[in-house]
Amino acid sequence: MKEEKDKQVQKSSKQISQAVETARDLPVFLPATDIYEKEDALLVACDLPGVDEKSLEITLEDDLLTITGTQDLSEPEGHELLHRGYLSGIYRRSFTLLTEVDRDKIKATISNGVLKLELPKSEQARPKKIQVTAG
């Protein structure tokens, strides 16, 4: 158990996901993520440096949210690498939401390498105030 955990130690400040091996010869990282809950929505913020809107895929299957983004893999041509502090590859992470989400109203924006997702809760999942009447 402990050994297993050690294998997942952060490398070059990105956490490498090792659950499944990939077909493509690219490392897969877990992006650092914040998840907030408001009364009427879930807010997700995800660090995805080097990923633009075209190389990003977000899916919601049942209540499994999956974010996959491929980083820009280009490197300067005709240059020699002097120092490698980070690897480039694929960011991928899944979350089980545990909340009913209104699928038609999900908003996703990416700017400056940060993905922001707003997942509005469905009517049933929102807290409801119950009026108590004195009888």
Binding site: V9, Q10, S12, E80, L81, G85
Partner: peptide, 17 residues
């Protein structure tokens, strides 16, 4: 090891010609 391995923030790549 865990801390020495980790690249300081921000992680950087450097190339030169």
């Amino acid at each position: 090891d865990q801390y020495l391995d980790a690249e300081p923030y921000p992680p950087v790549n450097i190339w030169a010609s």
